[in-house]
Design a protein around this nucleic acid. Structure first.
Lengths: 117, 117
DNA sequence: TTGACATATTCCGATATGGGCATATAGTTT
DNA sequence: AAACTATATGCCCATATCGGAATATGTCAA
């Protein structure tokens, strides 16, 4: 066995800068692929491929419209990321940071394994 | 040229589930590697390697203490992720979602490139 | 049907990743 | 110094990733 999970969840989908760019562009509204190509400066296949990944994690949805395919953002899929990172927000909120640090110290004392060492 | 950026920014560091686990554990306070090994169920080299990546993006900081190395979370490094994803929050906040959808439609009309298609 | 346009897919090569295992390095104790 | 503990590294393998170029697929128009 070598290597583990990768492009299959939102976290990974979003780890790619170009993919974030596409999402950002789609945040402005539904758009056909060619628009994204123009706006992103990426090649058409590149865009199609990245959109595919984003689709797999349901971060975007498609809708056929004539010969075009309209892509639309589905932020819902990004919620898990937000939920996870939200917990860390306190870390950089200075006031909380100080409190946390204090708590860490206290907690340490009672939690520290006292099994010799 | 093949392949682009990877493990060098917070987004990527956090894309790995095991790495998120380590961060979550460290959120509970400073800990030596062996604690993390025990708590995570990962092998020691695995932990060391993941910690290295996390260190490279400054998501954790080390402090030597005798023969141990105490790792501590540095949430600050995760802020960019939070800042980015925050913008998408409205998407799943139902009321906003509806409004956005409406705005999309309106915006579309005036923004749609009228250059022949 | 043929042709033009829009988008998706395939194949390829270069590279990086993560795990496993063995081992190196560092600090401590005796 | 030697033995021991704690952690970091190195090496290898299997696999996934991203980009590039070419091509397939799909849809509409003549």
């Amino acid at each position: 066995m070598a290597r583990a999970a990768t492009t299959a969840d939102a976290f990974n989908a979003v780890a790619e800068p170009h993919r974030r760019l596409l999402l950002d562009l789609l945040a402005g509204g539904e758009r056909p692929v060619n628009d994204l190509v123009a706006l992103s400066g990426l090649t058409q296949p590149q865009v199609s491929k990245h959109l595919r990944v984003l689709r797999r994690v349901d971060a975007v949805q498609v809708r056929g419209d004539g010969r075009q395919r309209l892509y639309r953002l589905n932020g819902q899929a990004l919620k898990p990321i937000h939920d996870w990172i939200k917990e860390y927000e306190r870390t950089w909120t200075e006031r909380f940071a100080a409190i946390d640090e204090l708590l860490d110290d206290l907690t340490q004392e009672e939690k520290d394994e006292p099994d010799g060492e």
